[in-house]
C-alpha cells in the first residue's frame, strides 16, 4: 500500500496528475474510512495537512471556505455565522461533535450523498465550487456539480479546493431544515434550505434546495418560478406547497417513504413562507 502525505496543494495535485498514483483523496475520513470498512485501497492521497485549504476568507461580495475546513470550524466561525447562518445550522446537524471535528465541507460536497447536510444550503445560496488541477482552476455552480447519483463534475486530476458563497443581499433570509431519523447523529429523510428576499409580502427572490428527495441534491425551479414576484397569501402558500410536492420525485428507502417526503417538503416550504411572511415588515 502507498500512502502519500501531502503538505501542500501542488504536491497533492502532482500525485493525482500521475495515473499511476491516482489514489483516493483522504481529508477528514469520516465517510471514506467507513466506506472502506477495513478494506483499504491500494493507495491513499492524504490531503488533510494542506493548510492552504483550511481558511475561511471574507471578500467583498463572497465568503470563501477552504475545502478542508471542518464542520466544527464553520460552526464557530463569526464570518459564517453572520453571512450564512443556515450553513452553521446545517453543520451542527452533521453526525455528532466527533464527526463535526473531523469531517470537512469539501468532503461533504464531493461525497455526493443525496442526503448530505451542507449541499442544500450551498445550492440555495448559489454557491460555486473551485476545482483545481495542475492545469489551473475552474469555478462551477454547485447546481452543475452533481451529475447523477454519487457522480460529480470533478475530473480525476482535480481537487475541490474551495466553496464560494455569495454574501446575502439586503432583506435576504434563509432557513435550514433537517428532518432526520432522530434528533442527533441522524441521516436525513428530508433536508432543505430556502433562501428568499420577501419585501412588502412580495417574493422578490427565492431559492429552494432539497436533499434526500432525488438521486442528487436538487433545486426546485418550477416552484421557485411559481413564487417569483407573487404577493404572498394563504392561497399562494398553499399552491406553492402543492407545486413542490408535485415537482420532487423522492423514493421509498430504508429511512422513509416517497409520500412522506413530499408531504414534509411541502409543509416545510409552507412553514418557511408563513414564518417569513409573518415576519416581513408590512405584514
Amino acid at each position: 500500500m502507498r500512502y502519500f502525505k501531502c503538505e501542500n496543494l501542488t504536491e497533492a495535485l502532482g500525485v493525482i496528475a500521475d495515473k499511476e498514483t491516482r489514489f483516493p483523496l483522504l481529508a477528514g475520513g469520516t465517510d471514506l474510512i467507513v466506506q472502506w470498512g477495513g478494506r483499504m485501497p491500494e493507495g491513499i492521497v492524504d490531503i488533510g495537512g494542506v493548510e492552504e485549504l483550511k481558511l475561511i476568507v471574507q471578500r467583498e461580495n463572497v465568503v470563501e471556505i477552504g475545502a478542508l475546513v471542518t464542520h466544527g470550524t464553520i460552526v464557530a466561525s463569526k464570518i459564517v455565522q453572520r453571512d450564512c447562518s443556515a450553513l452553521v445550522d446545517a453543520c451542527k446537524t452533521v453526525g455528532a461533535i466527533q464527526i463535526q471535528n473531523r469531517g470537512t465541507i469539501g468532503g461533504n460536497i464531493v461525497n455526493a450523498s443525496p442526503a448530505g447536510d451542507t449541499p442544500p444550503v450551498l445550492m440555495a445560496f448559489d454557491a460555486k465550487v473551485e476545482l483545481t488541477s495542475l492545469a489551473g482552476r475552474r469555478h462551477i455552480p454547485l447546481r452543475e456539480f452533481y451529475l447523477s447519483y454519487r457522480k460529480t463534475a470533478l475530473k480525476p486530476d482535480e481537487i475541490l479546493t474551495r466553496v464560494i458563497i455569495p454574501k446575502p443581499k439586503p432583506g435576504e433570509s434563509a432557513t435550514f431544515y433537517k428532518i432526520g431519523t432522530r434528533k442527533a447523529q441522524a441521516i436525513s429523510k428530508v433536508v432543505m434550505c430556502v433562501r428568499s428576499i420577501i419585501q412588502n409580502e412580495i417574493v422578490e427572490d427565492i431559492a429552494i434546495a432539497l436533499g434526500s428527495v432525488a438521486p442528487t441534491v436538487v433545486r426546485a425551479p418550477k416552484t421557485e418560478k411559481f413564487l417569483m414576484g407573487k404577493k404572498l397569501n394563504e392561497n399562494i402558500i398553499d399552491e406553492a406547497r402543492k407545486s413542490l410536492a408535485e415537482e420532487i420525485k423522492p423514493i421509498d428507502d430504508i429511512r422513509s417513504t416517497a409520500d412522506y417526503r413530499k408531504f414534509v417538503a411541502a409543509n416545510l416550504l409552507g412553514r418557511y413562507l408563513t414564518d417569513t411572511f409573518l415576519r416581513s415588515p408590512s405584514a
Partner: peptide
Amino acid sequence: TEEQRYDRGRLLNNRMQTYIIPTTLD
C-alpha cells in the same frame, strides 16, 4: 424508531447508523 427491517430474510438496517436507538437529544 427501533425496528429491524428485512428484505427476503436479509436484515436491511444492520448498522448503528440505520438502526436508530435514542441519543441524549431524544
